[in-house]
């Protein structure tokens, strides 16, 4: 299958000298949901903005549906719907108007029935004549999605669709995204949350400091990323880990006062009960316990380190 979006060797240096993207290569397949995961300032929005035509690339190229985004901008942009990160809406717009505006802007003939359907799908129909500025943040986000969908795009970019959204709306958002995918739309979304990527993406790309560190099947990546650590502080320092504990893969601190157990929270048995029993039979006395989830930051550091 040919990729619907193909990014090759893409670099971006902003006019102030900041390097936001470093030689990014990425292929996105039709019909998939790709999550771009990365901390603040990683370059997610920059990448999306270049593909959509809002920011120009410093070097490298992007093709969408076989057309170059610069020379064939009319074809590529017509295929893409973009939901921006910020809740940017005109001050005086009304819901239905602004959605119709987007449709026209993307070169589609007016189609009130279609616009109405989009509004219904996003539970916005009651608000169709409201001014957007009086809507709640979550509603505004929906209006932005409606605008992006107004011209029946084949590709949808969602830049942090669930930032600042409550749990319920987040579920709704995921539902909407799945429904869109089922209708054949290719979806690229950015997020800070591993669990979000896990919940809805088919593939996950990790981006940090302008570098695309890895793009992989979700399950594969989650296996790598989803580690949790149990720190066990011992009353008496140990010089070496007793053989009876070898199977747990413990790591002891240099002073021997703490051992660390790494486990996968997603697996059915985390092995903690076994470990605690073995610790007891090995005659070790525990002083304190705490667990830590490997943070995104740490995962990135690991990813960078593990890079060949």
């Amino acid at each position: 299958m040919k990729p619907i979006i193909s990014v090759s060797d893409l670099c971006k240096t902003y006019s102030d000298g900041h390097v936001a993207l470093k030689r990014v290569d990425l292929d996105i397949m039709p019909g998939e949901i790709l999550a771009l995961l990365g901390p603040n300032g990683a370059g997610k929005t920059t990448l999306i903005s270049i593909i959509c035509g809002i920011v120009s690339a410093s070097s490298g190229s992007v093709s969408v549906g076989g057309h170059d985004i610069v020379s064939g901008y009319r074809s590529t942009r017509a295929m893409i719907g973009l939901v921006p990160q910020e809740l940017t809406l005109g001050a005086f717009d009304r819901v239905r108007n602004t959605v119709s505006f987007s449709r026209g802007l993307f070169g589609k003939k007016p189609d009130p029935a279609y616009v109405e359907q989009v509004l219904r799908d996003l539970s916005l129909f009651d608000k169709k004549d409201s001014e957007v500025r009086i809507l709640s943040g979550g509603m505004k986000r929906r209006v932005l999605i409606a605008k992006a969908l107004s011209h029946e795009p084949r590709i949808l970019f969602l830049d942090e669709p669930t930032a600042g959204v409550d749990v319920e709306l987040r579920q709704d958002m995921w539902q909407i995204i799945r429904r869109l995918r089922d209708s054949g739309v290719t979806i690229i979304l950015t997020t800070h949350y591993i669990d979000e990527a896990e919940e809805i993406a088919d593939r996950v790309g990790v981006i940090n400091n302008g570098e695309l560190l890895v793009v992989d099947d979700k399950l594969e990546l989650m296996r790598k990323l989803g580690k949790k650590e149990l720190h066990i502080e011992l009353r008496e320092p140990i010089t070496r880990i007793p053989d009876s504990l070898a199977r747990h893969g413990l790591v002891s601190s240099p002073d021997g006062r703490e051992v660390t157990y790494t486990y996968d929270i997603r697996s059915d048995s985390t092995g903690i009960t076994d470990l605690l029993q073995d610790l007891k039979s090995a005659g070790l006395t525990l002083k304190d316990l705490n667990t830590a989830q490997s943070s995104l930051e740490e995962i990135f550091v690991n990813l960078v380190k593990n890079k060949p």
């Binding site: 942009r77 017509a78 973009l82 940017t88 987007s102 802007l105 070169g107």
Partner: peptide, 18 residues
């Protein structure tokens, strides 16, 4: 100026318009 100020210019920049 207003779309630039509010940020809604993103839509025009990303639309297939010359």
């Amino acid at each position: 100026f207003f779309p630039r100020f509010t940020g809604t210019i993103y839509e025009i920049m990303s639309a297939p318009v010359s």
